[in-house]
Nucleic acid binder design. Structure first.
Lengths: 241, 241
DNA sequence: CAGCTGCGATAACATTTGTTAGCGCAGGCG
DNA sequence: CGCCTGCGCTAACAAATGTTATCGCAGCTG
């Protein structure tokens, strides 16, 4: 049940079942969250490391006046919060966007499993480096792209991340994020998200279906978003032995 | 000459001279860069880990059309790129803002020194966690704050980071970043940076001196920026044994 | 000294984005 | 069925931000 993680790490590292079994056996236990449930609450102690098995989650921060910024989205195969190993309290919240199926490990047990297997430790370190790369990309998206380009860029990124995690690729992208969530993710107002989505539809770049987005013209979307074709690609990263 | 790093880590971890001497002796060598020089070029191999001894540097990404987004600023005591341990190529550039004085270590030698001392390894891991926290803060700044608030927030963050690194605190903040750099950091146009700075001056929140900013009213700045008082504070992070 | 260059301030105007409000549709529930 | 409620679309208007252009100043250089 940590297979999406397996698929992710397998794209970069030579790991086999023998590497994962101690994690499965000793460290991780399954947990379920309802849609909308809080997985991590702001300012509480960080006690576990999580791996998403199924469903989507968001990591967010709140401002005093109630505004929200979603920092990133967690998809199946994503791992959080490795920083729990070192930081005492969460400076952010995590919420289930859909019904959410995770594996979680108390930090002491996770550390034990990691210490026993150097390749596994390196692989998890890698996920942290990738996450940092995703954060930097989010910074560029917010700082230097228009509303429409932000949306196009996010869709392309999510599609790529799903592909890397071994989930269905193609042109169909499930989209459980509401307009409000997209707005809080992209630093826009919900109305402007609607406007910009309509513009993308009018330009025949995307189409909306129930619960999903169809990427009609990836080349066009990539041009609009100036999507970096090397982003998260394996050959930009040293392949692990 | 890696004393700012020592001060930084000392704020969180119990480390003494004995922990650092192997780094100094075996791993790190000094290097100098002129103002404006490229420290890391985009798409080149990452070969070293750096610690800033003196001066400022910026980490940035470029878009195809030439726009630039500065991802973060590196101050004395900051460490980069730990991700060199794992990523093959730089997906970003690093440029010296002032004359820059660094210590740098080839990654193999850095790994050797780190492996020999668990406390040191944990301390460096900590710097990576802090950097992630800084990136998240940058995301919130870009996504959910106005131009004036972004500037106020950045100034307060830089001041706090300088204090943590043991550099002069007080109300004086050196500011070697040009308007263009501030614009590329904050996702604004240079003109709007000028406008917003003028507004902050008019509101008696800051004053500009040659080469620096005076934070006249920190409380007012914090209120405008909704600056989180726990941001990067030691008690939000587990103190290392 | 004259002229050049980099940097910064400001004004006028254009564009993007935010705000408020009204409408419609689908699903849940009495 | 009728009535909510949550969510999304759109219009009209307001505010924030971008763009282009001009000016000034300081430092450098012939």
């Amino acid at each position: 049940m940590i297979d999406p993680l397996y698929a992710r790490l397998g794209a970069y590292a030579a790991l086999d079942e023998a590497d994962f079994s101690p994690l499965r056996a000793a460290a991780f236990e399954p947990a379920l969250y309802d849609r909308g449930a809080a997985v991590i609450e702001i300012a509480t102690a960080l006690t576990h490391v999580f791996v998403v098995a199924q469903g989507w989650a968001i990591r967010y921060r709140l401002l005093e006046d109630g505004r929200r910024q979603i920092v990133n989205v967690m998809l199946p195969g994503d791992c959080f919060d490795l920083q729990a190993m070192i930081a005492a309290k969460a400076d952010h919240g995590v919420e289930a966007v859909t019904a959410l199926d995770v594996m979680r490990a108390p930090k002491a047990r996770f550390l034990g499993a990691i210490r026993a297997n150097g390749r596994l430790a390196t692989a998890f370190w890698w996920t942290a480096v990738q996450e940092e790369s995703i954060l930097r990309e989010q910074i560029v998206r917010l700082g230097r792209r228009s509303g429409r380009a932000r949306i196009a860029h996010l869709f392309l990124e999510l599609q790529r991340r799903r592909t890397l995690a071994g989930l269905a690729g193609g042109d169909m992208l499930p989209m459980p994020l509401t307009r409000d969530m997209l707005a809080d993710m992209l630093g826009l107002s919900p109305v402007h998200v609607s406007r910009s989505l309509s513009a993308l539809k009018r330009a025949k770049l995307i189409a909306l279906q129930s619960g999903g987005v169809v990427l009609l013209d990836r080349r066009g979307l990539a041009a609009l978003a100036q999507f970096d074709p090397t982003y998260l690609h394996a050959d930009a990263m040293a392949r692990l032995a």
